[in-house]
Amino acid sequence: MRIGLVLLLTVAGVLYLYNPNLQDFQEYVRTQASTHLQRELGNTALGQAFTRAGSDLAALLTRKATRRDNYYFWSIYTIDPDGDDGEQDYWRFLGIGGQFFLIERPRR
């Protein structure tokens, strides 16, 4: 019984410590945008310049359009580009243990 409680408290502590913040999510978006843009634009000098600029822009816009719901052990990040709660045109990510997972995308 005590071992189970110690294990549960240890897991809860680790999840609490590694609950990603908004800067972590911004870096995740920058990395994902960079990977996608590099794949689309290629590895030329011009492609690399556009990749850097595009990934930085994506990270900046993410800061403006993202809402973070902090549940202490995990967080839900909602990116709603137009800020309209009426339509389901947003992306939602789960941040847990320092990782991010897409859990919902726009229906269009």
Rank of each mutant, 00 (worst) to 15 (best):
K64E: 10
E104I: 13
R92L: 04
D89Q: 00
D89H: 00
T51P: 00
W91F: 12
Y90W: 15
R105N: 09
D82T: 11
A12G: 03
P106R: 14
I96W: 10
D56E: 11
T66C: 15
N43D: 13
T62Q: 06
R67S: 07
F93L: 11
T51N: 03
G47P: 00
A33L: 05
T62A: 10
F73K: 07
L37N: 01
Q88L: 10
R39I: 00
R105S: 14
D85Q: 13
D69K: 15
R2S: 12
D84H: 08
A49Y: 04
T35V: 01
Y16L: 06
Y71C: 05
Q26N: 06
E27Q: 09
Q26W: 01
G98A: 10
S34A: 11
Y28M: 08
M1A: 11
Y90T: 07
Q23K: 15
P20R: 06
V29R: 12
G98F: 08
R63D: 09
R68P: 02
T51I: 05
Y28P: 01
R30T: 01
S34R: 03
E87K: 12
G13L: 01
D56K: 05
T66D: 09
A53L: 12
E87V: 14
G86I: 11
Y16K: 06
L46S: 02
R67P: 01
L5N: 15
G47Q: 04
K64Q: 12
Y71I: 02
L60T: 10
V14P: 07
E40R: 02
Q26D: 02
N70A: 07
E104N: 13
L61K: 12
V29S: 10
I3Q: 15
Q23M: 14
R68T: 02
T66K: 13
I96G: 04
Q26V: 08
K64F: 14
L60V: 08
I103E: 00
Y77S: 05
D85V: 12
L9V: 09
L41Q: 01
R30Q: 00
F25Q: 03
G97C: 09
